Simulated assay, not measured.
Amino acid sequence: MKLQHYLGGLEGLPAPLTFEKRVFVEEWEKRIFGIHVAMMGLSNHLGSSLPRYPIDEVPTAFKDEWTWADLRTGAEAMNPFDYFKFRYYEKWLGGITQFFIDKGYVSEDELAARKEELAAEAAPAVADPVPAIDDQVVDYLRRGDSPRRDVAHPKFAVGDSVRITNVAAAAHTRLPGYLRGRVGTVERIFEGDYAYFTHTGDGIGDPMPIYIVAFDPQDLFGERAEDGPLTIYAELFEAYLEGVR
């Protein structure tokens, strides 16, 4: 994972982290969250994420896939300096906007023109939502989607020692950088084989088992680890594990 997206184990950061307890700090952030949810509810990934989902009947001109993986990929593509400059939902906005530009739904010129209209308070009224689309998004929220594809077919067993791979990071990864090359113990195997809604290029995408792996902080951070009987747990796709001889 690129530096700006995983800071665990790093020292010398410029200031202590502050934890904002409010889910939404400003009203416009709710709209960004809503856009993301609507995109997931209209995404054609639903055709494979739920059995017999009538994807051809979804009433939308949106003909692409959009999942949490796509949202994360958009954020991870940001310039590191921009990443630290913008707030959480500003990163969402940037990723969603770039997705629509890249897919040809809107151009940068059209966005710039719309921005000028809004700044001049001369923007035309937005059309009322299409009821069928509203119904579809509500239906998605009720059904959800699932990456589970089968019962688990694990290569490793509880109690096995495993080494975390150091596979090259692609556009998006679910492997924390501080675990690469470290050895841990399989603590739990989840009940199913799980797909990731996009192929990341570093091994995940197709259905596979997911494990909880336990690590001794001393093995991860050496003398920097805090004292005490502590254990660090990580949920990891099987592609990120290899056996220890």
Rank of each mutant, 00 (worst) to 15 (best):
L13C: 02
L13F: 02
L17D: 12
L17C: 15
L17P: 07
T18L: 11
F24R: 05
V25T: 10
W28G: 06
F33I: 05
H36T: 07
H36V: 04
A38I: 03
M40V: 00
M40H: 03
M40P: 00
L46S: 01
L46D: 00
G47M: 03
S49L: 05
S49I: 01
Y53H: 12
A61D: 14
E65F: 05
D70R: 06
R72W: 10
R72C: 12
M78A: 04
M78Q: 07
M78T: 01
F81H: 14
D82K: 14
D82F: 15
K85P: 00
F86L: 13
E90M: 10
W92S: 11
I96N: 04
F99A: 10
D102E: 12
G104M: 05
G104N: 02
E110G: 13
A112C: 03
A113K: 11
D135C: 15
V137S: 10
L141M: 14
D145I: 06
D150T: 12
H153R: 15
P154S: 11
F156H: 06
G159C: 05
G177C: 09
G177H: 09
V183N: 10
V186P: 05
E187F: 04
I189W: 04
D193W: 01
Y196R: 13
T198M: 09
T198H: 10
T200Q: 01
G201D: 03
I204P: 02
I210H: 02
I210F: 06
A214Y: 04
F215M: 01
D219I: 07
L220I: 07
R224Q: 15
E226D: 14
G228D: 08
G228F: 02
L230K: 15
T231K: 10
L236C: 09
F237P: 00
G243Y: 04
V244I: 02
